[in-house]
């Protein structure tokens, strides 16, 4: 491992990291509810309680088992999203502390986000329901559109830092955040976070036009796990973006850990705002756009970054 400024804390801190992630995810859901309440002409305070009310509702609601469902796969897809989101934050530092500054932290995050492909598809395949099945396949189409731009977008900071370790990437941003001089990569990554957490404009796999798509036939705690998993993925994606693009814990006055949290919360809020502002883009529109417009743009961004790095010598 290259010399990084991070302190690796013991694995005993894992539960705290998990609680923190789920708390940030819940805050994101509350903010989303508040924004939605404003749009419906009600005071925002009414909407902020949505996550609590929905959780209570789903805890009380019975689960469903559809006829001839592929039960084991359904459960993997249902329970897996939260697990993957938690695994993502293993490599995300909180200020100067990290659970594990893997030398291939960026590859780790990438691997985790690819697991989401399987999980969402399994959640769609499992219930033996036409709507959910179409939703699952929609996600694969969408994933084909966003995954390559995502991969190249998170490669750019790694090139600039000359390392795949998240700690080195954070250290390389002292003074200047990567988001500032690689804005395309940053924006594409933000879009990808919305996409792997199935949020508008990338929410077609769970769209209203499919009666909820992958969510169509799940109820009770199964539905809660899917919804909480999506929020946790969005929070984990924001946290990772803060580390690799927004300077991690770097910042004046406040302690580094607080900067990490504040930036994550701010980015998550911005993503929630974006998702409420935009309609859903159909995957068949997204696919050519992702390949013919976004992919070349990200590659150009990567080229610029590589040239700058070589130029600096």
């Amino acid at each position: 491992m290259t010399g990084s400024s991070l302190t690796q804390v013991s694995a005993a801190w894992v539960p705290l990291a998990a609680v923190l992630l789920l708390a940030v995810a819940a805050a994101g859901a509350a903010f989303d509810g508040a924004v939605a309440a404003r749009a419906e002409g009600r005071p925002w305070q009414h909407g902020a309680g949505v996550p609590v009310a929905e959780t209570a509702r789903l805890l009380r609601q019975r689960r469903r088992r559809t006829v001839a469902a592929d039960r084991p796969l359904e459960l993997v897809g249902t329970g897996g999203l939260v697990v993957v989101a938690l695994l993502m934050v293993v490599v995300v530092p909180l200020g100067r502390w990290t659970l594990g500054d893997l030398p291939v932290g960026i590859v780790w995050f990438n691997a985790m986000d690819v697991v989401v492909w399987a999980l969402v598809w399994l959640a769609g395949w499992g219930p033996n329901s036409a709507h959910a099945l179409v939703g699952g396949y929609r996600f694969l189409a969408q994933a084909l559109a966003y995954e390559l731009p995502l991969m190249f977008a998170i490669t750019a900071p790694a090139v600039a830092a000359g390392s795949l370790a998240v700690g080195d990437v954070v250290a390389a941003q002292e003074g200047l955040w990567f988001a500032v001089w690689m804005p395309v990569a940053f924006l594409v990554f933000c879009g990808a976070v919305l996409a792997f957490s199935v949020r508008a404009p990338f929410s077609a796999p769970a769209g209203t036009d499919l009666a909820g798509g992958v969510l169509a036939d799940s109820s009770g705690i199964d539905r809660w796990l899917l919804l909480a998993g999506r929020w946790a993925l969005m929070a984990a994606g924001s946290a990772f973006a803060v580390a690799v693009f927004l300077g991690g814990g770097h910042g004046p006055l406040l302690p580094a850990w607080l900067w990490s949290l504040v930036k994550t919360a701010a980015l998550l809020a911005a993503l929630v705002w974006v998702r409420r502002r935009l309609p859903t883009v159909r995957p068949d529109r997204l696919l050519p756009f992702g390949w013919v417009v976004v992919l070349p743009l990200v590659l150009l961004q990567l080229l610029v970054v590589a040239v700058v790095v070589v130029g600096r010598g």
Binding site: R64, R65, T66, V67, N128, H131, A211, D217
Partner: peptide, 8 residues
């Protein structure tokens, strides 16, 4: 869990 047909 409730045994049910998928929603159609």
């Amino acid at each position: 869990p409730l045994a049910t047909l998928p929603f159609l």
